[in-house]
Amino acid sequence: MQSLLCLPSPSTPARCRIDLATGQLTLRGDLDDRLQPQLAACVTALTAARPRVWLVDLRGVTFCDVPSLRVFVALQGAARRRSADLLLVGATPALRDLLDLVGLGSHLVDAPEPSELASAGVPGDDRA
C-alpha cells in the first residue's frame, strides 16, 4: 500500500495522512497555517495518484482556517478535472456550515462507521 504521512511541527496535534492506493485523505486536529504545507503536499499527491473516488475523512478536524478551506475548493476543482468523485466525510456541524458556504455542500456525506467504510471498499479509520 502506498501512503504518505504528512506531519506538522511537533507543537500542533494536527496531521494529515493520505493513502494513495485508495484515495483517502484523513485529517485530524486544527487545520491552520502550521499544517498548510503538508496539506498542500497531500493534495498534490492525491491529484497525481488519480483515484476514481477521493474520500476526505474530516471526523477528527477540530478547526479549519480560510487557507485550508481554499485547499478544499482547489481539491474540488482537481477532482472535477479528473472526473473523480469527491466525498467529504464526517465534518462537524460548524465545519459543514463553512464547507457549504464555499460551495462544497454537495460533497458532504454523513460519517459511516469504519465497518461501513470497509464494506463499501474504503479503508476504515486507523486514527491517522
Rank of each mutant, 00 (worst) to 15 (best):
T92W: 03
L108V: 11
C64S: 13
G121A: 11
V102M: 13
D100H: 06
D57R: 02
F63N: 03
T47C: 12
E113D: 15
C16D: 04
S115T: 09
D110R: 14
L88N: 03
P123I: 12
V56G: 01
G60A: 07
C16N: 01
T12P: 01
R52Y: 00
D19I: 02
G77L: 11
V66A: 12
G90V: 02
A41D: 09
G90F: 06
R96T: 05
A84N: 05
C16E: 08
L86H: 00
R17W: 14
V43D: 09
L75G: 12
R81Y: 01
D30A: 15
D126A: 13
R80Y: 05
R17H: 15
L35S: 03
R70W: 06
T12Q: 11
L88C: 11
L27W: 00
D32H: 15
L87F: 09
P67G: 08
L7V: 14
L95R: 05
V109E: 06
G23R: 00
G105F: 13
R34W: 07
S9V: 13
L25H: 02
L35R: 02
A94W: 06
H107G: 02
P123W: 05
L87W: 12
T44Q: 15
V73F: 12
P112R: 05
S119W: 06
T92K: 07
L20T: 01
Q76Y: 13
D110Q: 10
T26K: 01
G103A: 05
S68Q: 05
F63I: 04
L75Y: 08
L117F: 12
P67L: 10
L7H: 13
V122A: 09
R96F: 00
R80L: 14
A14E: 08
C64H: 10
T92H: 10
